[in-house]
Amino acid sequence: MLIRVGTDRPVASSDITPRSLWLRRREFLAAGAGLGLGLAGFGARAATSPYSTDEKPNSRADITSYNNFYEFGTDKSDPAAKAGRLKTKPWTLRIDGLVEKPADYALEDFLKPFSMEERIYRMRCVEGWSMVIPWLGFPLAEAIKRAQPQAGAKYVAFETLVRPEEMPGQRSFPKIIPWPYREGLRLDEAMHPLTLLATGLYGEPLPNQNGAPLRLVVPWKYGFKGIKSIVRMTLVAEQPKTSWNMIAPDEYGFYANVNPGVDHPRWSQATERRIGEGGLFAKRRPTLMFNGYESVASLYSGMDLRANY
Protein backbone atom coordinates (compact mmCIF):
# COMPACT_ATOMS: atom_id res chain seq x y z
CA MET A 1 0.00 0.00 0.00
CA LEU A 2 1.32 3.43 -0.87
CA ILE A 3 0.66 6.02 1.75
CA ARG A 4 1.48 9.60 1.00
CA VAL A 5 2.56 11.61 3.93
CA GLY A 6 2.19 15.25 3.13
CA THR A 7 2.09 17.94 5.75
CA ASP A 8 3.05 15.63 8.57
CA ARG A 9 6.78 15.66 7.88
CA PRO A 10 7.90 19.06 6.68
CA VAL A 11 11.21 19.41 8.55
CA ALA A 12 14.18 17.49 9.83
CA SER A 13 13.66 15.62 13.07
CA SER A 14 16.34 17.66 14.77
CA ASP A 15 14.17 20.73 14.28
CA ILE A 16 11.17 19.07 15.81
CA THR A 17 12.16 17.63 19.14
CA PRO A 18 12.39 20.32 21.78
CA ARG A 19 15.87 20.54 23.16
CA SER A 20 14.77 19.90 26.73
CA LEU A 21 13.08 16.71 25.68
CA TRP A 22 16.01 15.60 23.63
CA LEU A 23 18.24 16.14 26.62
CA ARG A 24 15.93 14.05 28.78
CA ARG A 25 16.12 11.30 26.25
CA ARG A 26 19.90 11.34 26.28
CA GLU A 27 19.77 11.15 30.07
CA PHE A 28 17.63 8.12 29.75
CA LEU A 29 19.96 6.57 27.23
CA ALA A 30 22.83 6.94 29.65
CA ALA A 31 20.85 5.43 32.48
CA GLY A 32 18.99 2.93 30.34
CA ALA A 33 21.23 -0.08 30.81
CA GLY A 34 21.09 0.14 34.57
CA LEU A 35 17.35 0.50 34.88
CA GLY A 36 16.59 -3.17 34.48
CA LEU A 37 13.26 -2.50 32.84
CA GLY A 38 12.94 -5.96 31.46
CA LEU A 39 11.61 -4.54 28.22
CA ALA A 40 13.97 -5.51 25.47
CA GLY A 41 14.71 -2.73 23.06
CA PHE A 42 13.16 -0.17 25.35
CA GLY A 43 14.54 3.31 25.08
CA ALA A 44 18.03 2.33 24.07
CA ARG A 45 17.19 2.46 20.38
CA ALA A 46 14.61 5.24 20.54
CA ALA A 47 14.80 7.57 17.58
CA THR A 48 12.90 10.74 16.80
CA SER A 49 10.44 10.73 13.97
CA PRO A 50 9.45 12.92 11.04
CA TYR A 51 5.85 12.17 12.03
CA SER A 52 6.23 14.18 15.23
CA THR A 53 4.59 17.55 15.68
CA ASP A 54 6.76 20.51 16.63
CA GLU A 55 4.18 21.69 19.16
CA LYS A 56 5.24 21.92 22.76
CA PRO A 57 4.49 18.69 24.62
CA ASN A 58 2.39 18.82 27.77
CA SER A 59 4.21 18.37 31.03
CA ARG A 60 4.72 14.84 32.27
CA ALA A 61 2.59 15.80 35.28
CA ASP A 62 -0.37 16.75 33.05
CA ILE A 63 -0.04 13.66 30.90
CA THR A 64 0.15 11.29 33.84
CA SER A 65 -2.47 12.84 36.13
CA TYR A 66 -5.36 13.62 33.79
CA ASN A 67 -6.50 10.35 32.26
CA ASN A 68 -9.61 8.60 31.09
CA PHE A 69 -9.02 4.96 31.96
CA TYR A 70 -12.34 3.73 33.30
CA GLU A 71 -10.81 0.45 34.50
CA PHE A 72 -9.63 2.57 37.43
CA GLY A 73 -12.64 4.88 37.85
CA THR A 74 -14.47 7.58 35.93
CA ASP A 75 -12.78 10.60 37.45
CA LYS A 76 -9.76 11.81 35.52
CA SER A 77 -7.67 11.69 38.68
CA ASP A 78 -8.67 8.07 39.43
CA PRO A 79 -6.17 6.32 37.15
CA ALA A 80 -3.16 8.11 38.65
CA ALA A 81 -4.48 7.44 42.14
CA LYS A 82 -5.57 3.84 41.71
CA ALA A 83 -3.52 2.23 38.95
CA GLY A 84 -0.51 1.57 41.18
CA ARG A 85 -1.65 -1.93 42.09
CA LEU A 86 -1.81 -3.14 38.51
CA LYS A 87 0.91 -5.73 37.89
CA THR A 88 2.28 -5.42 34.37
CA LYS A 89 4.96 -8.09 34.79
CA PRO A 90 4.59 -10.75 33.63
CA TRP A 91 2.42 -9.70 30.70
CA THR A 92 1.09 -11.93 27.97
CA LEU A 93 -0.07 -10.65 24.62
CA ARG A 94 -2.17 -12.92 22.45
CA ILE A 95 -2.15 -12.40 18.71
CA ASP A 96 -4.70 -14.57 16.97
CA GLY A 97 -7.47 -14.70 14.41
CA LEU A 98 -6.76 -14.61 10.70
CA VAL A 99 -2.96 -14.74 10.91
CA GLU A 100 -0.39 -17.31 9.83
CA LYS A 101 1.48 -17.00 13.12
CA PRO A 102 -0.92 -16.84 16.06
CA ALA A 103 0.91 -16.82 19.39
CA ASP A 104 0.85 -16.00 23.07
CA TYR A 105 3.87 -13.80 23.61
CA ALA A 106 5.62 -12.83 26.78
CA LEU A 107 5.70 -9.09 26.25
CA GLU A 108 9.53 -8.95 26.26
CA ASP A 109 9.62 -11.49 23.46
CA PHE A 110 6.96 -9.69 21.50
CA LEU A 111 8.82 -6.38 21.69
CA LYS A 112 12.29 -7.73 20.93
CA PRO A 113 12.27 -7.33 17.13
CA PHE A 114 11.00 -3.73 17.11
CA SER A 115 13.00 -0.55 17.46
CA MET A 116 11.43 2.21 19.47
CA GLU A 117 10.87 5.70 18.15
CA GLU A 118 9.77 8.83 19.83
CA ARG A 119 6.55 10.20 18.31
CA ILE A 120 5.22 13.52 19.53
CA TYR A 121 1.52 13.44 18.73
CA ARG A 122 -1.48 15.60 19.40
CA MET A 123 -4.17 13.76 21.37
CA ARG A 124 -7.75 14.98 21.07
CA CYS A 125 -10.24 13.63 23.59
CA VAL A 126 -13.85 13.22 22.51
CA GLU A 127 -14.74 15.40 25.52
CA GLY A 128 -13.25 18.50 23.89
CA TRP A 129 -9.75 18.78 25.31
CA SER A 130 -6.35 17.98 23.90
CA MET A 131 -2.72 17.40 24.80
CA VAL A 132 0.60 16.92 23.03
CA ILE A 133 2.31 13.72 24.11
CA PRO A 134 5.82 12.41 23.39
CA TRP A 135 5.16 8.70 23.00
CA LEU A 136 7.71 5.98 22.67
CA GLY A 137 6.68 3.12 20.46
CA PHE A 138 6.74 1.50 17.06
CA PRO A 139 4.32 1.26 14.15
CA LEU A 140 1.51 -1.24 14.69
CA ALA A 141 2.04 -2.18 11.03
CA GLU A 142 5.30 -3.90 11.92
CA ALA A 143 3.64 -6.11 14.49
CA ILE A 144 0.85 -6.99 12.09
CA LYS A 145 3.29 -7.87 9.31
CA ARG A 146 5.17 -10.21 11.64
CA ALA A 147 1.95 -12.04 12.43
CA GLN A 148 1.34 -12.47 8.67
CA PRO A 149 -2.31 -11.62 8.16
CA GLN A 150 -4.33 -13.93 5.94
CA ALA A 151 -6.11 -12.64 2.86
CA GLY A 152 -9.47 -12.52 4.64
CA ALA A 153 -8.25 -10.25 7.45
CA LYS A 154 -9.93 -6.85 7.15
CA TYR A 155 -9.93 -5.50 10.71
CA VAL A 156 -7.91 -5.66 13.91
CA ALA A 157 -9.75 -6.11 17.22
CA PHE A 158 -8.07 -5.18 20.50
CA GLU A 159 -8.86 -6.06 24.10
CA THR A 160 -7.75 -4.60 27.42
CA LEU A 161 -6.84 -6.69 30.44
CA VAL A 162 -9.69 -7.74 32.74
CA ARG A 163 -8.43 -8.06 36.30
CA PRO A 164 -11.00 -6.62 38.71
CA GLU A 165 -8.85 -7.31 41.76
CA GLU A 166 -6.30 -4.81 40.44
CA MET A 167 -8.66 -2.59 38.45
CA PRO A 168 -11.25 -1.09 40.82
CA GLY A 169 -13.28 0.44 37.99
CA GLN A 170 -14.08 -3.07 36.79
CA ARG A 171 -15.69 -3.76 40.17
CA SER A 172 -17.79 -0.61 40.18
CA PHE A 173 -21.55 -0.47 40.08
CA PRO A 174 -23.28 0.34 37.82
CA LYS A 175 -21.08 -1.27 35.22
CA ILE A 176 -19.64 1.63 33.23
CA ILE A 177 -18.41 -0.55 30.37
CA PRO A 178 -19.09 -4.20 29.53
CA TRP A 179 -15.54 -5.39 30.20
CA PRO A 180 -13.16 -6.03 28.58
CA TYR A 181 -12.71 -2.66 26.93
CA ARG A 182 -12.68 -3.32 23.20
CA GLU A 183 -11.41 -1.31 20.28
CA GLY A 184 -10.84 -1.92 16.62
CA LEU A 185 -9.34 -0.53 13.45
CA ARG A 186 -9.80 -1.25 9.80
CA LEU A 187 -6.67 -3.04 8.56
CA ASP A 188 -5.56 -0.09 6.41
CA GLU A 189 -5.91 2.24 9.40
CA ALA A 190 -3.92 -0.21 11.50
CA MET A 191 -1.21 -0.36 8.82
CA HIS A 192 -0.93 3.42 8.49
CA PRO A 193 2.53 4.60 9.54
CA LEU A 194 1.07 7.06 12.05
CA THR A 195 -0.60 4.25 14.02
CA LEU A 196 1.56 3.37 16.96
CA LEU A 197 1.90 0.71 19.61
CA ALA A 198 3.33 2.66 22.52
CA THR A 199 5.32 1.32 25.44
CA GLY A 200 6.51 4.59 26.90
CA LEU A 201 6.24 8.34 27.12
CA TYR A 202 8.80 11.01 27.82
CA GLY A 203 11.52 8.44 27.27
CA GLU A 204 10.35 6.24 30.12
CA PRO A 205 8.11 3.18 30.39
CA LEU A 206 4.39 3.95 30.32
CA PRO A 207 2.98 4.68 33.76
CA ASN A 208 0.09 2.33 34.55
CA GLN A 209 -2.45 5.15 34.27
CA ASN A 210 -1.41 5.75 30.67
CA GLY A 211 -1.99 2.17 29.61
CA ALA A 212 1.07 0.18 30.63
CA PRO A 213 2.66 -1.87 29.37
CA LEU A 214 1.35 -1.62 25.81
CA ARG A 215 -1.25 0.69 24.29
CA LEU A 216 -2.53 1.88 20.96
CA VAL A 217 -2.10 5.46 19.72
CA VAL A 218 -4.07 6.62 16.68
CA PRO A 219 -3.52 10.38 16.60
CA TRP A 220 -6.19 11.30 14.05
CA LYS A 221 -8.94 9.61 16.07
CA TYR A 222 -10.53 10.56 19.37
CA GLY A 223 -8.54 9.39 22.35
CA PHE A 224 -10.88 6.57 23.33
CA LYS A 225 -9.71 4.64 20.26
CA GLY A 226 -6.28 4.43 21.90
CA ILE A 227 -6.96 1.25 23.86
CA LYS A 228 -4.75 0.75 26.89
CA SER A 229 -3.08 -2.23 28.60
CA ILE A 230 -3.64 -4.47 25.59
CA VAL A 231 -3.72 -8.24 26.11
CA ARG A 232 -5.10 -9.34 22.78
CA MET A 233 -5.00 -8.39 19.13
CA THR A 234 -7.16 -10.38 16.75
CA LEU A 235 -7.24 -10.11 12.98
CA VAL A 236 -10.82 -10.52 11.83
CA ALA A 237 -12.94 -10.36 8.69
CA GLU A 238 -15.86 -8.35 10.06
CA GLN A 239 -15.92 -4.96 11.78
CA PRO A 240 -15.36 -5.74 15.47
CA LYS A 241 -17.45 -4.45 18.34
CA THR A 242 -15.99 -1.46 20.13
CA SER A 243 -16.82 -0.51 23.71
CA TRP A 244 -18.12 3.05 23.45
CA ASN A 245 -20.06 2.14 20.33
CA MET A 246 -21.69 -0.69 22.28
CA ILE A 247 -22.62 1.67 25.13
CA ALA A 248 -23.97 4.56 23.03
CA PRO A 249 -23.98 3.83 19.29
CA ASP A 250 -25.52 7.20 18.42
CA GLU A 251 -22.72 9.04 20.21
CA TYR A 252 -19.58 7.03 19.45
CA GLY A 253 -18.97 5.49 16.06
CA PHE A 254 -16.52 2.80 15.01
CA TYR A 255 -14.36 5.29 13.13
CA ALA A 256 -14.30 8.15 15.66
CA ASN A 257 -12.10 10.29 13.44
CA VAL A 258 -11.52 13.74 14.87
CA ASN A 259 -13.92 15.89 12.89
CA PRO A 260 -14.88 19.46 13.86
CA GLY A 261 -17.82 19.30 11.44
CA VAL A 262 -19.56 16.36 13.09
CA ASP A 263 -20.68 17.12 16.63
CA HIS A 264 -21.08 14.67 19.41
CA PRO A 265 -24.87 14.65 19.87
CA ARG A 266 -24.48 16.13 23.34
CA TRP A 267 -21.68 18.65 22.75
CA SER A 268 -19.83 20.47 19.98
CA GLN A 269 -16.60 19.13 18.50
CA ALA A 270 -15.71 22.39 16.73
CA THR A 271 -13.26 23.54 19.38
CA GLU A 272 -11.00 22.11 22.04
CA ARG A 273 -9.10 23.27 25.07
CA ARG A 274 -5.40 22.51 25.06
CA ILE A 275 -4.55 21.28 28.54
CA GLY A 276 -1.79 23.19 30.28
CA GLU A 277 -2.28 26.31 28.22
CA GLY A 278 -3.49 29.55 29.80
CA GLY A 279 -4.75 28.22 33.12
CA LEU A 280 -8.09 29.54 34.28
CA PHE A 281 -8.35 31.94 31.33
CA ALA A 282 -7.34 29.58 28.53
CA LYS A 283 -9.08 30.12 25.22
CA ARG A 284 -10.40 27.25 23.16
CA ARG A 285 -8.75 26.57 19.83
CA PRO A 286 -10.42 25.31 16.68
CA THR A 287 -10.31 21.55 16.26
CA LEU A 288 -8.64 20.41 13.04
CA MET A 289 -9.96 17.78 10.64
CA PHE A 290 -8.32 14.45 11.45
CA ASN A 291 -6.71 16.30 14.36
CA GLY A 292 -4.44 17.97 11.80
CA TYR A 293 -3.19 14.65 10.35
CA GLU A 294 -4.54 15.38 6.90
CA SER A 295 -2.50 12.65 5.24
CA VAL A 296 -4.99 10.04 6.46
CA ALA A 297 -7.81 11.58 4.41
CA SER A 298 -7.12 9.17 1.55
CA LEU A 299 -8.12 6.28 3.80
CA TYR A 300 -11.65 7.62 3.75
CA SER A 301 -12.06 8.88 0.20
CA GLY A 302 -15.60 8.35 -0.97
CA MET A 303 -16.86 7.69 2.55
CA ASP A 304 -19.57 9.79 4.15
CA LEU A 305 -17.84 10.81 7.37
CA ARG A 306 -21.11 12.18 8.73
CA ALA A 307 -22.67 8.73 8.56
CA ASN A 308 -19.43 6.95 9.52
CA TYR A 309 -18.62 9.11 12.54
Partner: peptide
Amino acid sequence: GLAGTTGPDPI
Protein backbone atom coordinates in the same frame (compact mmCIF):
# COMPACT_ATOMS: atom_id res chain seq x y z
CA GLY B 1 -7.65 27.62 39.74
CA LEU B 2 -5.57 30.80 39.78
CA ALA B 3 -2.81 29.09 41.74
CA GLY B 4 -2.85 26.09 39.43
CA THR B 5 -3.59 23.53 42.12
CA THR B 6 -6.88 22.21 40.73
CA GLY B 7 -5.40 19.88 38.14
CA PRO B 8 -4.52 20.10 34.47
CA ASP B 9 -7.90 21.59 33.42
CA PRO B 10 -8.68 24.31 35.97
CA ILE B 11 -11.62 25.68 33.95
